[in-house]
């Protein structure tokens, strides 16, 4: 293969790996340092999704195989679809259980004690 193209692909994969790992590390630092569940979940669901998407893209580009690349893109799509669902469900469960917001937050527009829904 053309050595210039090969070099460009290697640099692209290296950059995607580093940036994706940095985003994942920032998400984990947010989980470690933020004061309550809602802010932690905000860090995990946004930065975690973009970090895992970039690393999946790096794996797909490095394989130089269309099938692997399409599967990596499908995995990224799956992450974008599912990370908000689990974060929303967990935040709803926490709010129903009476998990207080941190003192730094300004307003909570959802009523605190929500009646559990009947079937």
């Amino acid at each position: 293969m053309n050595p210039v193209l090969n070099m460009a692909i290697a640099v692209l994969v290296a950059a995607l790996l580093i940036v994706g790992a940095v985003f994942s590390l920032l998400a984990a630092i947010g989980i470690l340092r933020f004061p309550d569940l809602y802010t932690r979940m905000h860090a995990a669901s946004k930065a975690g999704t973009i970090g895992s998407g970039l690393l999946l893209l790096a794996a797909g580009v490095h394989s130089l195989d269309a099938a692997i690349l399409i599967r990596a893109l499908a995995g990224f799509f799956f992450f974008v679809l599912t990370a908000p669902i689990s974060a929303h469900l967990l935040a709803k469960a926490a709010h129903q259980a009476g998990y207080k917001l941190t003192k730094l937050s300004v307003v909570d527009q959802l009523p605190q004690k929500e009646e559990p829904r009947r079937r």
């Binding site: 090969n6 692909i9 290697a10 640099v11 290296a14 950059a15 580093i18």
Partner: peptide, 8 residues
Amino acid sequence: MELSIIWS
């Protein structure tokens, strides 16, 4: 090029 990928 392999070296850059290994280090990253």
